[in-house]
């Protein structure tokens, strides 16, 4: 790597960080890209590295969290620690001290307007202050309000919520409201259709569309369709709940249109399903690392055709 490349990569990084800000100079960025073909390659690498961090770092963060708590408890006991973790201690200890200050400061800052998270191509981990974890799927949106007592989801998310009987947490998705939560579960909302799958623990699902709330325990799930308010409760395999986090989608008699919408969410491809296929159902597992490969698998498994290219496809009745 020579000096010119270093400069280009530094510039690419600055543009990438600036692109998240409201005052980003998009015209200046265009001119920078046009100035040298190496600029866009450097920029590609920076945004791909960042996207990889957001995607795989989210999963990694689930494990180090526990190790972290350990080290913080023994902040002065450095004799047994490897050099790496000593450095990590100091950062961890500092982080905890500062975040305590942050918790205390919050009510002072104000009554706490809602915090909104919106994802694009990559999923994102969100930590609640009580230690609960949420992984927000790509192309999804989550609003946390009322001192972390109300959460509104559009799109999909995996929840790992620590149980606290005293808390009154409600999660809304479409017409449904989830309460009485102390568990690990997955929620997928697509255009008002909602799927809930409980891996472990317990969730109570209520809706104006139901006569009475539905209780789901580990290994159970439900599907709700706002058209007619139809709800189906069924068994789910616990390991399939939230398996999109490792790139796997499993269906049991799901409408093809819903499967296509999922592929669009998780892989960013555009998919249109022919009108004549609206009633077709799909059962099976898709691997979504690559949207085009997953679509091709889907079409082949169902004996359907696939036309299109460059991220925009149509599923047709004629096998390709």
């Amino acid at each position: 790597m020579n000096g010119a490349d270093e400069t280009i990569i530094a510039e690419a990084t600055d543009w990438h960080l600036a692109s998240a800000r409201d005052d980003m100079d998009w015209d200046g960025f265009t001119r920078w890209l046009e100035a040298d073909v190496r600029h866009r390659t450097a920029y590609d690498e920076i945004v791909l590295a960042d996207a990889a961090l957001a995607e795989h770092g989210a999963m990694a963060a689930m494990q180090p969290a526990a190790a972290n708590d350990d080290t913080i408890g023994y902040a002065d006991d450095e004799a047994v620690a490897a050099p790496d973790s000593i450095a990590w201690h100091r950062w961890g200890g500092l982080a905890i001290a500062a975040s305590l200050a942050l918790v205390l400061a919050l009510p002072w800052i104000g009554p706490g307007g809602p915090t909104t998270y919106a994802t694009e191509a990559a999923s994102r981990a969100i930590a609640l202050q009580d230690g609960s974890q949420i992984v927000l799927a790509p192309h999804s949106r989550l609003e946390i309000a009322d001192g972390e007592r109300r959460i509104a989801l559009s799109g999909a998310a995996w929840f790992d919520i620590s149980h606290r009987p005293s808390r009154n947490l409600a999660i809304t998705a479409g017409d449904l409201e989830l309460r009485d939560i102390g568990t690990r579960f997955d929620v997928q909302e697509t255009g008002g259709q909602v799927r809930v799958a409980v891996a472990e623990g317990h969730v109570r699902v209520a809706s104006a569309a139901f006569d009475r709330p539905i209780d789901l325990s580990g290994g159970r799930g439900l599907t709700y369709d706002p058209r007619g308010g139809a709800v189906t409760v069924r068994d789910v395999r616990s390991e399939d709940a939230g398996a999109w986090r490792s790139g796997r989608l499993t269906y049991d008699a799901a409408p093809l249109v819903l499967v296509a919408a999922d592929l669009a969410r998780y892989t960013g491809v555009q998919v249109v399903v022919d009108k004549t296929l609206q009633d077709r159902m799909f059962s099976g597992t898709l691997i979504v690392g690559n949207g085009e490969a997953a679509l091709r698998d889907l079409a082949q498994l169902m004996g359907l055709g696939l036309v299109g290219s460059n991220g925009a496809y149509r599923v047709t009745a004629q096998p390709g």
Partner: peptide, 14 residues
């Protein structure tokens, strides 16, 4: 910009 990123990610993975 995000559309290009989506496409680049899919392409890199493929």
């Amino acid at each position: 910009n995000n559309l290009v990123l989506d496409q680049r990610r899919a392409r890199r993975r493929a």
